[in-house]
Nucleic acid binder design. Structure first.
Lengths: 199, 199, 199, 199
DNA sequence: AATGAATGAGAATTCATTCAT
DNA sequence: TATGAATGAATTCTCATTCAT
């Protein structure tokens, strides 16, 4: 009789996640081509062969990582934009983004590298799918607040956020993330934002 | 013979540069491990063997790229900090950085990836060498101006600059670099900066 | 319980045949090493594990195919040589062979390939076991008819038969098997054969 | 300075041929999938890596073998059909074919297997390209002679030739190739052929 | 009896590097 | 100085076979 237990499904999902996590970590630190399936499997505690039972190729592992993350990423933005008060929304956006990054630091490391090196894997197209969304949402937010030059302000805010994250990823513990975050939040407080409106 | 040997030197230097440039471009787009010596040599229009006459290994090519760039990088900062007027210095810093990046876009692409993926090449340590400098200089500048919380302000400015660059590298032609740059300069104009001083 | 176990035997035999047939088809079209147990099991509608319950190895599957076929092959020749009239026997031989091949086309495809590539599987020795038989039987037949040079004539007839089959296997529907067969039968009619006797 | 000597070209061609010959021999005896690049390279006395300098893949080696052979095959038929006397032409055809096969026995072994197992390598299409030619030419020859049913007679002759070759490849030294060949030639002598004409 | 997860050896292919010329 | 033939280790991926359930 075949193994029917629901446990089996659970174990399979666990193994799958183990492989994905190991791959992510290695991709993040050594790059896609710098990480071998051997290493990935070993780190995940499985055999090379088994890794190929779960994924058809190294590239597919990368795609799955990006897929899984996209799902997770969508949720956060939804939460932020549920907040009704525009000014609180800005605060929330900043807070949530930093929390999100702290939680998925490894992912952002890998993702940023891939965005920077568009040809690491032929025929992957993140750029258009991603990123533009956030700017658009921030712009709308600023427009509702009556801020002049909303688009540019949005670009600047988003760039600042990503710049801080970048520096954090560069310098890790040496970077005073909390302090800079607070400063940013202060800069985008209701009081400061109102100064940018038409009156 | 001096004439001949002089020309020879020139040609040698040209070949060296050709190899470095080809490598840089490939490293930037496909990553270090994603680019082969074959490709590098071909792109440079030389044979694999000749490339090895100029550099002992692929890793050495990378090191040379980083070295050459460090030299160039130093110069710019010197120019900026020769300016006596502190407020003009800020403007200059922003302007110069963006110009610098535009000129060496490929380099920054590669460099950022390497900073993000610290284990791409074992035993490379950029992080400490680089980056901290700029923040320190900016902090000093802000202190001289009497700005409160100079260090944090410096971190924020540098993060914003790098964030903008990052977005530019991500989105290239779709990114309104000039517009954002102008906005940033405005935000750090004498007028705005004075508001941040103790009075 | 006898009823149940009887049915069980039937099912077992059916599964066994399903696996053998699937393997045969794949071996015939893609070769022994070009066909995987995975494929064989899938085509047979069973799991890899079950296939290994029936056969100890891929090689054993091949051996079983050859075994089963040898049994079937023996029968035909027996029928042919039961015919008492020598001249009718020739006709029967030709007819039966072609029918046999048409029925087991896939098998012949695989078998011929194996004969041609004697090292596909180490330590298999078909050649001697097979083939010589038919020639010997045909030779005897011709001798009984009083045909001069019976052995050579036998070799030629058998070669012609196998050549036709070969071409049929090569060209399939494009090959006018029936027409060629009829011509061959005519060439080996009583009338023609008598011309080859000593008188 | 690069190696310019014509010798280099010679050596390259020799190495290329060495690899092709080794591959052919292995493909013939063990099949395409049964022969590894490792083995091929070793047999050719070169490293695996070098074999890949000469050919992009194992499949390409096979294609080159077939290509080279097609060129050689064309020549023979040309010679045969240069003969003006139709009856001599038949004799020549038989003689030439057997000589050709004896010379390239290994090749025919491999080629026949590939024809029999059409899916060994996806997307190869020998069948249509090859084989039909010979039949057409033989048919024309017979028509010029005024032989009734020329097409069928041609098919039969060609099948007989290929059948003899097949048996020779099966049984090698045990097969009395010369004797059977002579008998075939006798069967297609001018005298016998004339009996098949309308008069 | 039946499944398919798991393994590990081995296959195809790539690539940094060396070397004869 | 310049070439690219040559190597061998490492890499991606496959597959026969085993095994827990």
């Amino acid at each position: 009789m075949p193994r029917t237990s629901e446990q089996l499904e659970k174990i399979k999902e666990q193994t799958r996640m183990k492989i994905l996590e190991s791959a992510l970590e290695l991709f993040a630190l050594k790059g896609f081509h710098g990480s071998s399936m051997q290493e990935i499997a070993k780190k995940a505690g499985v055999s090379k062969g088994l890794a190929y039972n779960y994924f058809n190729s190294k590239e597919e592992i990368l795609k799955e990582i990006l897929n899984d993350a996209k799902k997770a990423g969508g949720l956060i933005m939804t939460q932020v934009f549920e907040e009704e008060d525009n000014f609180k929304q800005v605060q929330l956006l900043i807070e949530a983004t930093f929390e999100h990054i702290a939680a998925g630091e490894t992912y952002w490391r890998m993702f940023s590298s891939l965005m920077l090196q568009p040809n690491v894997v032929e025929s992957f197209d993140f750029v258009d799918e991603f990123g533009t969304n956030l700017v658009e949402l921030t712009t709308k937010m600023f427009k509702r607040m009556g801020i002049k030059n909303a688009k540019t302000e949005a670009l600047l805010l988003d760039a600042s956020i990503d710049g801080i994250i970048l520096h954090y990823l560069f310098f890790k513990d040496k970077y005073p993330l909390q302090r800079v975050k607070k400063e940013l939040i202060k800069k985008y407080s209701k009081e400061e934002l109102l100064k940018k409106t038409d009156q």
